[in-house]
């Protein structure tokens, strides 16, 4: 029973401590065209410190929530660019871009699909 109460208290404390974190939200543009791009972009955006990343396929807008003490917005841009998607601040390296599947090649006139 004692153990039980201790567990319960620990549990409550962890819950409330996490309420005190500082989260920042940022929105920026990322180039991409399709559902496959969306998965790749969102995955790349989730570097440690990023809580949530949602990319809107139609508008190209990326919405991220992150902890400013752990990661900077630029780190997120870089990580996305490194998988081949140019962001409003960082251009994708040519090598990474060339690795994208043909259907995701946003600079070669592929329409959103």
């Amino acid at each position: 029973m004692k153990l039980y109460i201790v567990t319960l208290v620990c549990f409550m404390l962890t819950s409330f401590s996490s309420l005190a974190q500082k989260n920042i939200q940022a929105t920026f543009e990322v180039k991409g065209v399709c559902g496959m791009c969306k998965k790749r972009i969102e995955k790349a955006a989730l570097v440690p410190g990023v809580k949530m990343a949602t990319w809107d396929q139609k508008s190209g807008q990326m919405k991220v929530y992150f902890r400013s003490d752990k990661v900077t917005e630029l780190d997120i841009h870089k990580s996305i660019a490194n998988v081949g998607h140019t962001t409003s601040k960082v251009k994708a390296p040519a090598e990474a871009y060339s690795k994208l599947p043909a259907c995701c090649a946003y600079d070669s006139g592929v329409n959103k699909h």
Binding site: M12, S15, L46, K51
Partner: peptide, 14 residues
Amino acid sequence: SIIGNTNHPIKMGA
């Protein structure tokens, strides 16, 4: 809530 990021959702309670 989440652990780290939204790929790890968690529910807890009493």
